[in-house]
């Protein structure tokens, strides 16, 4: 960086004072580690010496059955997680936001406060709470389902290979629905009252105003929520799954995601030994996956949506 005035050659030290500390911490503890991880993914330990191996680690990750099976399993699970969040979490969030943004709704502030509350709690706490509630041992859920007359459908969902991932995802949705809700809510409030009045004068009613006026106007927020969901799925999902299902992401790897896979690869777990370079390779692959998503968002989705903004 050079902080020089175009016209003179005096150094303006105060600019350095303002900008340097943040840049330094950010560079050393955020950017450098990511770049260094990318570098490490191109090396491997041979006879206790680090050696450059090109893209061998990636080849290994994508083709050697031991690695590829885990990788693609985790990737597939992440995709399922993402799809469920997009299909359930975001529509529910939009519906709640739409209801909350009805003018003069009584108690709107209270509802809003309640809906957002789970978001603030630690994933660990939420995870354990739902583990207890869904536990056949305690019997809260079976009792409730009996009461509703659907008791025979109960199963220890978190323990079954077929349903564990979906159950975990639903818990995550329960916790995080507040965030997209707030984003939608803010976007809806941001629509000028006059636009809605104009629509009413044009003869639109509540439903058609929502579909034909409000929804197109908050499309950019929809895009933003989409990309945030995407990034969150690939990185933040670790906490919940590690808490609920442990590092092996059981049963039988059925809830394994990129986060837990990366954790196991790097640190090792039980019999498996940790591998720094393979851990870096998994992280870097994840980096590229996120990069692709972000690029699609920035250059495809966002640009097209931006046009709708006033």
């Amino acid at each position: 960086m050079s902080h020089s005035i175009p016209s003179g050659s005096r150094w303006r030290w105060y600019i350095v004072f303002f900008v340097a500390p943040a840049t330094l911490i950010y560079t050393v503890f955020a950017i450098y580690p990511i770049v260094e991880s990318l570098r490490l993914s191109l090396f491997a330990e041979r006879d206790a010496v680090e050696a450059f191996v090109g893209i061998d680690n990636y080849k290994k990750l994508f083709t050697e059955p031991y690695w590829a099976d885990q990788f693609w399993n985790a990737f597939k699970n992440n995709v399922w997680l993402f799809v469920l969040h997009m299909l359930i979490q975001n529509p529910v969030a939009l519906a709640l936001a739409a209801i909350l943004s009805i003018p003069n709704l009584r108690g709107a502030a209270t509802y809003r406060t309640i809906f957002f509350l789970p978001t603030l709690l630690s994933v660990v706490v939420i995870g354990f709470i739902w583990q207890l509630i869904l536990s056949p041992l305690w019997g809260i859920t079976p009792a409730f389902m009996n009461f509703m007359g659907v008791g025979k459908f109960f199963a220890p969902w978190l323990g079954l290979e077929s349903s564990a991932l979906t159950a975990v995802t639903l818990i995550s949705i329960w916790q995080y629905v507040g965030i997209p809700m707030m984003l939608f809510y803010a976007a809806l409030l941001n629509i000028p009252e006059e636009t809605l009045e104009a629509a009413r004068i044009d003869g639109l009613n509540g439903w058609s105003i929502f579909w034909k006026v409000k929804l197109p106007l908050i499309l950019p927020t929809l895009g933003l929520v989409g990309i945030l969901t995407y990034i969150g799925n690939f990185t933040a999902s670790f906490d919940l799954i590690y808490t609920l299902q442990g590092g092996l992401a059981g049963p039988n790897g059925s809830t394994d995601v990129m986060g837990t896979f990366m954790f196991r690869t790097f640190f090792g777990f039980q019999a498996q030994l940790g591998d720094v370079n393979m851990g870096a390779t998994v992280a870097s692959s994840l980096f590229f996956i996120i990069l692709i998503g972000v690029s699609v968002y920035l250059f495809g989705v966002q640009r097209r949506l931006q046009r709708y903004q006033a």
């Binding site: 503890f29 990511i34 770049v35 991880s37 490490l40 720094v276 992280a283 990069l291």
Partner: peptide
């Protein structure tokens, strides 16, 4: 940039650091 690139991806190098 860091808004879009989660810092967790650098964990391996971060621990070494």
């Amino acid at each position: 940039l860091g808004i879009m690139v989660p810092i967790r991806l650098g964990t391996v190098a971060l621990l070494e650091l």
